[in-house]
Design a protein around this nucleic acid. Sequence first.
DNA 1: TTGTAGGCGTTATCAA
DNA 2: TTGATAACGCCTACAA
Lengths: 345, 345
Amino acid sequence: MNSEKKAPSKPVDSVVTLEQVAKLAGVSPSTVSRILNGTATVSEAKQETVQRAIRELGYRPNPVARGLAGGRTLSVGVVTQVISSPFYGEALLGIERELERAGYVPLFVSGNWHEEDERKALQTLLARRVDGVIVLAGRIRDEELLQMSDTVPIVVVGRQLQGPRLFSFAFDSRTGARLAAQHLIEQGHRRIALITGDMIHEDAVDRHQGYVDALTAAGIPIEPELIVPGDYNEASGMLAVNRLIDHNIRFTAVFACNDQMAFGAALGLSRRNLRVPDDISLVGFDDVVMARYTVPPLTTVRQSVYEIGAEAAKAMLGMLRGETPRATPPPPELLLRDSTRRISR
Amino acid sequence: MNSEKKAPSKPVDSVVTLEQVAKLAGVSPSTVSRILNGTATVSEAKQETVQRAIRELGYRPNPVARGLAGGRTLSVGVVTQVISSPFYGEALLGIERELERAGYVPLFVSGNWHEEDERKALQTLLARRVDGVIVLAGRIRDEELLQMSDTVPIVVVGRQLQGPRLFSFAFDSRTGARLAAQHLIEQGHRRIALITGDMIHEDAVDRHQGYVDALTAAGIPIEPELIVPGDYNEASGMLAVNRLIDHNIRFTAVFACNDQMAFGAALGLSRRNLRVPDDISLVGFDDVVMARYTVPPLTTVRQSVYEIGAEAAKAMLGMLRGETPRATPPPPELLLRDSTRRISR
DNA sequence: TTGTAGGCGTTATCAA
DNA sequence: TTGATAACGCCTACAA
């Protein structure tokens, strides 16, 4: 009946100003602003008139102007490390989805695991007047973050530090790693190689510790020669097994501290004619999408990076609302797939 | 000697305004602005004084204010489809790196392969006053993009359409696919299964066509039963091979239209006790990072998504500079790895 | 409850 | 070549 009805998703554009809305509604700009922000109580009548005007004109507030006026920019900065990694990708997705529901837009900037880059990234974000910042791990020092947090609220993922406007939470990597190692032990493995992450990451340290926990609990001595350093990239996983084999170090299982290194390890093993899981059992960590599709599918520790991202975003939104944020990162969980096997003899 | 020397990467913050710089330099704000933007010629002397003041104060222009003042926001919107996919991740990296060199920041928004989401994404970007928009494939109609392009310059990747302020370029998928199929044919394969992408993507159509080209050129008839639809995700690759096998369709090789489906196919084949490449040869497309690390490593068509992203960004920067953009997407290239084998009998 | 006026940091237009 | 001055679109006292 009414041609307005179908509202064929208005043409992609946006030039209507708050002032125009005010004029159409017959009120002052401030009133419109107040309604938009819930800054003050406005009479029911005007509420409606204005809302109608907004709809009619298809008005959308201009975040740029808002930002300048000292209000919010409705944007949250996100310092990621490598935007293209399967790991961070999932997290970013979680962040984006969650922020979007509240009308916020993420501003992603890469830190490249490089302190100076990270600092630059943070400066860029501040200059852009983001309302808050989410930092995914990274190398920048705690004090700097802390200091920055009195300019803008911050959520840090993967570290432990607190401040009045700084909230952090971490996934329980240590328990996760313990589960992984425990599983191998239960399968009868005793000589379990560990491919660590770069120890500059807190979670790399935690995962190493989880491995130690499990072995110790089982009364298995820690053999330093079985522990080889990696850097969370595929190549380092491959290098690691090569090194073990070249040094004639015996092992029946490998625990790689993330999936990417596990993939590299799998390839390295196969190049040396060692089959997974028949000859060597292999466990990863993270459960990136690809872990489900390797041959054989990889047993790994589920970390639900997506949810972690979503939690971070929720915490940020909470802070922005003035609440005390809390986050409940999903508990680690071992996913049994086909890359491990009970030791035969 | 001079404590200024070390410049311990100034504290993360930014509150200095252009006005303060002007005052310190003893000139008017407009002059400072002119120097910053090269809008007009300024005397050498003032140039230097101002530059020094800028350095001294650690001044950084406020992009938000710039945006409002009708100037540029120094941000470029990017409509991606799934930010977490290994494919788009690489492209985004290329875009980010390239933009950063010019002082621009990307604003990533996901389209989720959903027309309405894409429209919303575009609106969000416009509302944020981005200086330009890069669209990676997507479903929004050409006319809409064209119309939008007189509000803001646009670069579209993976489609062919032209406009005064709209530039598009596409990777040569057809040739790439032909190379892949040709390779299998040269290895003696005749019954080559094809797992297509969702035909809503232009490149899926092109890759299908490249397959047809190669077979036709070799005088091999196209068998519809060998062509099974996929959707570019791992799961569909697995489903596809299952379907082929369940229907008792004979084939000695599989060409999956992207790597992710190839991974799924590899797993599906292994579940049916078919080995790659001994029993079945497998080729993918894209060369995502993981293709190098599967067991066996995947023969695939290199697309250098990173470079494509970088090219898109360069083209955008060109338009922003008022130049006529041009892009030279890297030519397709077949990467021989270990997932194919000459047919024995 | 509502309107007016000033300001946020820059750019752009006009004179000088 | 330079400096006032007026926007840009919105928010927030302050006043009514």
